[in-house]
Design a protein around this nucleic acid. Sequence first.
RNA 1: GCCGGGAUGGUGGAACUGGCAGACACAACGGACUUAAAAUCCGUUGCCCCCAGCGGGGCGUGAGGGUUCGAGUCCCUCUCCCGGCACCA
Length: 820
Amino acid sequence: MDSYDYTEIEKRWKPVWRDMGLYRTGTDPGREPFYCLDFFPYPSGAGLSVGHCRNYVPTDVISRKKRMDGYNVLHPMGWDAFGQPAEEYAIKTGTHPAEVTTENTATYRRQMELIEASYDWDREVNSSDPDYYRWTQFFFLLLYDRGLAYQADNYQMWCPECKIVLSNEEAAGGRCWRCDGEVTRKKLRQWYFRITEYADRLLRDLDGLDWPEGIKAMQRNWIGRSEGAEVDFTVQTTDGPVVIPVYTTRLDTIYGATFCVLAPEHPDVERITTADMRAEVEQYVREARAKSDLERMEASEREKTGVFTGAYAENPYNGEKVPVYVADYVLAGYGTAAIMAVPAHDERDHSFARRHGLPIVEVIAPGGVPQGVEEHATVADGSLLNSGPFDGMESGEARRKMAEYAEEKGFGRADVRFRIRDWLVSRQRYWGAPIPIVHCERCGTVPDRDLPVTLPEVESYEPDDTGRSPLARAGDWVRTVCPECGGPARRDTSTMAGFACSSWYFLRFASPHEKDRPFDPEAVRYWLPVDLYVGGAEHAVMHLIYARFWTKVMYDAGMVDFSEPFSTLKNQGMLLGEDHVKMSKSRGNVVTPDEMVDRYGADALRLYILFMGPFEAELEWSEEGIAGTARFVNRLWNLFCETGEVEPGDVNEGPERELRYRLAHTVKKVTGDVDSFQFNTAVAAMMELTNYMSANRETASAFGPTWREAVRKVLVMLAPMAPFVSEELWHRLGFADGERDTVHLQPWPEYDEEDLQRDTVEIVVQVKGKIRDRIDVPADADRATMEELALRSGRIREILGGKGPSRVIVVPGRLVNIIP
RNA sequence: GCCGGGAUGGUGGAACUGGCAGACACAACGGACUUAAAAUCCGUUGCCCCCAGCGGGGCGUGAGGGUUCGAGUCCCUCUCCCGGCACCA
């Protein structure tokens, strides 16, 4: 028997399917749409590894099955093409980043075609194409017009390695998301999107999404809503009073506030510092600024440093004056950058107080019992003591009452705060979408609506560590006229972060060739929101939060009729190398689809990706594993070639019935498994059925027409997973209705409930929960019958030794458990 | 510290709403084919014990406890692993 020649057969079908336009998608109002989308990939120079296939193969299987289910399926692919690696390569070699990008996207596409991902390539988009980024710029202006884009001077996250500012999301954990280097701060004027204005909605709307719990939890945590209060402490200086609002979630502990702390970056530090403390405070602030966030955190975990400002602030509740410190354990970016410190009931304040010899006053007694606070802070809620008129109240009630009181007196107010910061979106880099803004001396900041604002040609793409953009060196491009007054003006020289481009691409796919608008609203209404969105978990608080934000802005602007872009989200698990570590070039453990397709064929690779384990699980690559699915393809090929066209002979009823049962069972199992992303067990079920058929191949004709029906249904179910071998056999075994027919447009197989019924079933007989016998009983036997049959069993009678049972538990169709 | 997810044979993993633990594969071992090897095909394979054999028994899902006729699955306590966040007042 010939073995399956995948090279030959893959070569045969690719052009046929291409000519048929098998994967082309039209807007068809008569058919139910299904939009299946992969995360927008950045086409890196390294190309795809088999790890990427864990994303692209499952979505392809779903897309193909949905087509067979009768859906009109949108399954597009495009390139998140702006970005630093291409730019860095350009800096090193002098080639234009566009050239590198073109090469890389070609490689990606070639590899995706290698595994026959069924993308509609007519809809391919590229975010670095002016026809695309003009609309990214358009959305920038939409946000600008809605007051959601603004410039501000701040201490930004700065990656000295990449020479680039970072958004909060990109600098999570004090490390740069790209190079993992430590992040420092730099004071620069930058563009922001006011995502904080959407914090509440971004949080609330998570509840309705069919997303992994982990991702939702990460977003909730990142948005970080907390309920508290703002209270004004007042410092008397020689220049008059300075009001310092502090933010607290523990207003109930305010009678225990024994000092206040300002972040080193707090704007009032200078004003309140007394002359004799000035030198020391200034030095501390300088040193704090020079440290990276990571250094600050690590240092202060050991010891909480800080210096006294010489100032005292009045607690408005009790009129007490408490010393004011500057310390870097208070963050500049959260709350009011100033806190009231309650060492008795906050660990951090406690360790600061201990180090600096400050008083500790206990004001909360959990369960009415003071816990003692010399050694450790008591963080639990409880009833108040040493708290004037609020004594005896429980924490929760006290927080409400005390906030009301503050509001009445005008020195405070209940307040909800979020941890999420506004999105820093400008980058001083070349390879990105230019921010379409002109700066005019007369008119100020003016939007440039003559889009696209195309990237100029420049001599060098090098960024510098002053935070100046390479675009600033394109003098002729920078010098322009003001769109408002016609006077001389200068272009903004920043580009947008790549995450801007990927915040709307899913809309572009609905009508990718639209000339005069970002998308056709009709097409968007038909296709969106995305039904199934699949990608890695690493974008939990970056792309996935930004895209939700932009969608909500568009919803508010009346451009789309949904406010969440991705109904269902799934994350594929990571794929490790055979050496148990993440695949990487430097490790030298990267396995490419190219070599695997070459050695085992595309079908074997696809099947192995599906079969190796659960979709979400982190798994290790194994070449022995792919050899196994290649063997399966081969066995199936031989079995079907040999028996697929067998003429039905005299039917042997028992086996025929058994095959009908197994076939129905397999169809049911595979259907359910594929729909619920359990591809590994779907493949296993088909292996099981074909193993059974293989064991009975000699007597195939005795199964009557059922045999060929099984062959046909297996081929159809296999088609989304292994498109080549199933198509070849479909034609070779004469299932095809003419040359132009294809297995890929067959309706998904169904099964007859009746075939799942059996006459007898084997049940387990237990004595005291231990299995002692197995007996066959009629499938529809009732409890009494089952009990009777079980008690009749010789083995059971032997064990019972003539005594009758004291109790019998019967589970119909499953087991009888006898308690003597 | 907080949040999310895990722990099942030599390995990857399977097990519907509590009901036959180990499907399917890999590896290993034995056999067939072969001058030989590879490929292919057939068989064995959780651990331990009894039996010449047919067969039979015990143990077993990270640890300990609990609920139940019955627990991988439910509850409590704990250990370890992976991912994320982390001085957020």
